[in-house]
Design a protein around this nucleic acid. Sequence first.
DNA 1: GCAAATTTATGACATAAGTCATTGATGCCC
DNA 2: GGGCATCAATGACTTATGTCATAAATTTGC
Lengths: 239, 239
Amino acid sequence: MKTPKEDFTPPSHCQLCKNRGHSAFHNLGAEDLDKISELKSCVSFKKGQVIMNEGSRPQGVYCIHKGKAKVYRVGTEGKEQVIRFATNGDLIGYRSILSDEPISASISALDDTYACYIPKSSFFKVIEENSKFSLNVLKLSCHELGEAGKMIASLAQKTVRERLAEILLVLRATFGEDEEGYIDLKLTREEIANMVGTATESAIRLISELKDQEYISTQGKRIKLLDRPALRQIAGVFE
Amino acid sequence: MKTPKEDFTPPSHCQLCKNRGHSAFHNLGAEDLDKISELKSCVSFKKGQVIMNEGSRPQGVYCIHKGKAKVYRVGTEGKEQVIRFATNGDLIGYRSILSDEPISASISALDDTYACYIPKSSFFKVIEENSKFSLNVLKLSCHELGEAGKMIASLAQKTVRERLAEILLVLRATFGEDEEGYIDLKLTREEIANMVGTATESAIRLISELKDQEYISTQGKRIKLLDRPALRQIAGVFE
DNA sequence: GCAAATTTATGACATAAGTCATTGATGCCC
DNA sequence: GGGCATCAATGACTTATGTCATAAATTTGC
């Protein structure tokens, strides 16, 4: 267990949060931030810990302060399918609360994660009273809806190889690189397979193939993208 | 060209619209409905006609008054993947407008369709001023986000046979049955394949198989579900 | 620092699903 | 109402991907 160099605990008031600028709370006034800060609480999750469980009814939302999480559904045979990721500044659990349905996907921490828990009541209050915030969340959910649509088409039409290249690019774009240029997230091959939507062995084989072609390199669980234009071409992403 | 028995044109005022009860406009007050009715216009689309095109920037949303539409993305090789459906009372085009992104999927009419076009400006005005409406749309997009997540897991984990059974159940639930018990929507096998995410021939083969097993029956393009519990079991849907 | 446990890597093989080709059925238009 | 176009059905074959088994390499825990 290594000692953290800095304190990852979120500040007690949202006004002081450095993630606020690129979160759904970015353009809220002091009064609304007060309302949220007042009732929020800080929580932390260890790597691998389940944050929310499919089928349950969350009593609030989490705003990730520092950490990484995956949103996934468990199918028959216990196989997971990752639907999306969340990291610093991202809101999770809001979908279920707003649609008034049980959670449709589980969420677990991909890394030690620190978050603020905002109870349903304060979240709703601000949504109802502040049209700016409501519009932010609306924008967020609509954006995610678009991404989900892209993923549906991708799963239906692309090969595993194409999807693997795509996921590697997404992971890098979402979580960034460490000092040595590796994607800043350690995942087992099985977890990567669950994101791509394929068997673990297939993912391993195709990762080896990409390595042989020198489009990527790996060191244990760490993956570095060596030739992103080539990966983009494989993925069929030209945007 | 057959003459319609009734007039499918939407009423000039939303207050009189019979779909309103189960649409995002269900709990709006008279003033807001005035605001929308004032600027809305009626449009109609022939079967097969494209309503919105991937990549474009819509200047308003459509509320379907009577008709059927599919939302889909076109992949390489021109193959379509259907992402979701829309019918009476459903809102389309809102995702792009609210996330301020180009349309991520095309929409076309599966049948002659009559809709109300609501310009962006009036839509936004009501969203901003009426938190009830804003919450309705939020609820809608969050619900669709959940459905999209289910579809992602389904595509990644289920066999074509399972997904076909699932889609048949969804079609029936969405569009209902005609007097003879057939799903009230005529689709080519190719279109069904594009919904399931498979090749046309595979869809045909599996439809024949389901027919042989007497879980469904067909008459031309019309499909009747004979044994829904069995289909649910195949689909792995127990909800 | 070593042993156990997990994870990665590969080979061999099975199989679901895609592709190509052909025939037969339906529906549509002048 | 007959011919053309589209669509459905099926067979034969290929291929991508999944499954099972085993060995090598990491990682983890004591």
